[in-house]
């Protein structure tokens, strides 16, 4: 008699499926996941884990957390990061200290693998959530991440 129970179960499961999709259909207005992109440019916010580009956050005193250890430059598989550094006199201790001059990031070469951010021991670089990265000249994609005149935050190296 499995013939008739098969038919019964078949119809029952098909109707279950239809009720689920029907429920989606009725609630599609509220729950539509489509972003109507150029229209909602003002309000569109990417989720936290979105990998837009690498940035270096600065605080209000124009201080960043990069010590110039070059871990990110070594970790990068395709050479997107170049760090220009030199040894300067630390005004507080009077000793010579390694400091970054420019943290150069080539967005055009970056594959968004995130290895630099994982490698960074001081969390100096993070992902930004912006996504409108197109420009008319590729030289604009080469970015200097540390702001002019910025310095490393005190106490990071300890």
């Amino acid at each position: 008699m499995s013939y008739f129970s098969d038919i019964y179960n078949g119809i029952k499961t098909l109707l279950t499926g239809m009720s689920i999709t029907g429920n989606y259909f009725l609630h599609s207005r509220k729950g539509a996941i489509t972003q109507q992109y150029p229209d909602n440019r003002e309000t569109l916010k990417m989720f936290d884990r979105f990998r837009g580009e690498v940035i270096m956050p600065h605080d209000e005193n124009n201080e960043h957390r990069c010590t110039g250890c070059q871990s990110c430059e070594i970790a990068c598989p395709n050479g997107s990061i170049e760090i220009i550094w030199d040894r300067q006199l630390d005004p507080e201790t009077g000793k010579k200290k390694k400091m970054i001059d420019k943290h150069i990031y080539h967005l055009s070469m970056c594959t968004m693998c995130g290895l630099c951010i994982e490698a960074c021991p001081t969390d100096a670089i993070v992902w930004a959530q912006n996504f409108e990265n197109s420009v008319y000249d590729r030289s604009q994609l080469t970015k200097v991440l540390n702001r002019p005149g910025s310095k490393v935050k005190a106490g990071i190296e300890d």
Binding site: T21, Y24, F25, S28, R29, G31, A32, I33, T34
Partner: peptide, 10 residues
């Protein structure tokens, strides 16, 4: 349109 609504699209 109906397909979109079933898939929670527009």
């Amino acid at each position: 349109r109906v397909a979109a609504w079933f898939q929670l699209r527009l």
